[in-house]
Every structure is written in structure tokens, then in C-alpha cells.
């Protein structure tokens, strides 16, 4: 039996971009407000899960050709490499530093090295959550 889900697909096309924007906002606001790499990654993963729910695995794999196990592995690698990068400068493992720069559009901006670490955490969370949900929901 074919099921008419044109409303779900039309809504999803807009809502996915809202959720992705909110996930990036949560990822970038993790210093002194609620947010950070972990829950930013969870929100990004929920956007991808919504894509998988409204479409099917084959369609999403065609438009988003990512192996999410590799995404998780790359995230863990990125987080660990930034941890070891602090050893080059003679400070303890996983030390972080920050500085203020004058960027053209944003004005005075605080750039930290912990953001790279948080990007690794976010990638790991996205990969692991999407892999788990695809594994437990697939039928044979």
C-alpha cells in the first residue's frame, strides 16, 4: 500500500535546514552559554536522522555519500591530534589557548583551539549516533 507522505517530505525540506543552523549555533556558542560540541553534534545527528525518516536510506546515501563510521573515526582522530598538538609547544596534553583577532566582518573575535577539539567531538557524535540509529532500525 502506498502511503501519501507529501506533507512530511515538504516540511522536512525546510525543517532540516533550521535544525542544521541551530546545531551550528549550539556548536559555536559552547563557551559561556549552553552548547558545545556534544549537543551540537546531537542536534546535527537528529537533522540527519530526520532526513533518513522522511526519505529512505538509498536516497540519502545518494545525496549525502558519507560512511558515518568513517566520520566518527575522523572525529576521534581530530580530537586526539589537537590534544597532542599542545605537546609540541611544551605544555601539558590537551591544553588550550585563545587569542583575539580583528576579522573583517565579525569585528573582534575570540578564536580558540578548543573549537577544533569540539569539532572532533561533534563529528564523532554525529557518526556514532547515525550509525547506531541506522543499525537498530534496519530491517532484513
Amino acid at each position: 500500500m502506498k502511503i501519501n507522505d507529501v506533507i512530511l517530505r515538504t516540511v522536512t525540506r525546510i525543517v532540516v535546514f533550521i535544525i542544521l543552523t541551530f546545531g551550528v549555533y549550539l556548536f559555536l556558542s559552547g563557551h559561556n552559554t549552553p552548547g558545545g560540541g556534544f549537543i551540537g553534534g546531537l542536534v546535527l545527528a537528529s537533522a540527519i536522522v530526520l532526513l533518513y525518516l522522511s526519505n529512505d536510506i538509498e536516497t540519502v546515501q545518494r545525496s549525502l555519500p558519507l560512511d558515518f563510521k568513517l566520520v566518527a573515526a575522523f572525529g576521534v582522530l581530530l580530537a586526539t591530534v589537537t590534544g597532542f598538538g599542545s605537546l609540541i609547544f611544551g605544555v601539558p596534553f590537551m591544553s588550550q589557548t585563545f587569542a583575539y583577532f580583528d576579522l573583517p566582518v565579525f569585528g573582534k573575535t575570540e578564536l580558540t583551539t578548543v573549537t577544533i577539539f569540539e569539532a572532533g567531538v561533534a563529528l564523532a557524535v554525529v557518526g556514532v549516533v547515525v550509525t547506531i540509529i541506522l543499525s537498530i532500525s534496519e530491517d532484513e
Partner: peptide, 10 residues
Amino acid sequence: ERGIIVELKS
């Protein structure tokens, strides 16, 4: 409605 959550192929 369908019994499965994520379809492999529509």
C-alpha cells in the same frame, strides 16, 4: 503505520 522506521529503499 508501516512497521519499520527507516526504509532501505522506497
